[in-house]
């Protein structure tokens, strides 16, 4: 009986892990196969879908996405850092209420935020704002609460004794912020910025309302194609963009991001 339960347990574990990995394997296989789907035909490998990526059809939306995500990461990084500093470090009056305000967009589904923004822009006659500027604004609204929360957590977790010691030793406020606080919370800020970049780069539910023909992001371009065909070049686009995201995470990790936060930084 116990044996049977164990066997069932391992089978269910294995099945779920297969379920998780199956679509990823299928997409990688499709990106290398000459036909449009993974079938039981004898497999030959081809790299031509990846070669097709070097056309403006895919490079333009990719570069647009990178541009938007970079601006969003920079803006929400700076704003989130300042906001968390004011609320957590300075504890200005009403800081709890202010923090809830700063985090309130998190409780609204993205698609609802997207509708609200597109209706708002249309109502006040700013349709010309659609495309890149609207995408940046909407993605900042989406990313800012996450960044604020991450920076706030690392500000709340860092050892205030260090700050106090610096003060006793005669450091002024700006000096302490520059030499003590900022280096201590750097991992939190960097992971917030990375996260902002990724959620902007991958975003669909907000972007879908705000793009314009010729001014679109990569995920939106991909899903617009997907509705009509399963062209294997899309598999190549997806695999390449995942590789790009992994590279970004790796780079930020090198600068001193997440694992530094796990091992040092917080208590």
């Amino acid at each position: 009986m116990n044996r049977l339960i164990s066997i069932l347990y391992w089978i269910s574990l294995g099945t779920v892990l297969c379920f998780i990995t199956l679509p990823l394997i299928v997409v990688v296989a499709a990106s290398l196969s000459p036909t449009s789907a993974v079938t039981l035909q004898p497999w030959e490998w081809t790299g031509r879908w990846y070669a097709d990526l070097w056309s403006s059809r895919w490079l333009d939306p990719f570069l647009a996405s990178v541009k938007i995500a970079t601006v969003v990461a920079a803006i929400s990084g700076v704003l989130g850092l300042f906001a968390a500093y004011a609320v957590v470090y300075e504890r200005i009056p009403g800081s709890d209420a202010l923090m809830s305000c700063l985090l309130s967009p998190l409780s609204v589904p993205q698609i609802v935020k997207g509708v609200a923004i597109v209706l708002f822009l249309s109502m006040i006659g700013l349709q010309g704002f659609l495309g890149t500027p609207a995408l940046i604004a909407a993605h900042v609204v989406l990313a800012l609460p996450f960044v604020t929360r991450m920076v706030a957590t690392s500000l709340a977790n860092f050892d205030a004794n260090l700050d106090r010691a610096a003060q006793i030793l005669g450091a002024g406020k700006l000096q302490r912020i520059r030499l003590v606080v900022l280096p201590m919370i750097k991992p939190g800020v960097l992971s917030g910025v990375t996260f902002a970049f990724i959620i902007s780069f991958n975003n669909i539910p907000l972007s879908v309302f705000l793009v314009r023909p010729g001014d679109s992001t990569l995920p939106i371009t991909v899903i617009n194609y997907l509705e009509y065909s399963l062209d294997p070049v899309l598999a190549a686009v997806n695999v390449a963009s995942m590789a790009f995201i992994l590279t970004v995470i790796f780079l930020f990790e090198k600068i001193g991001g997440f694992s530094a936060q796990l091992h040092g930084g917080s208590k």
Binding site: L22, P23, L24, V27, I204, P219, A235, V239, S241
Partner: peptide, 8 residues
Amino acid sequence: GVVLRTYG
């Protein structure tokens, strides 16, 4: 990302 998995 969601697109890659949905495509799969």
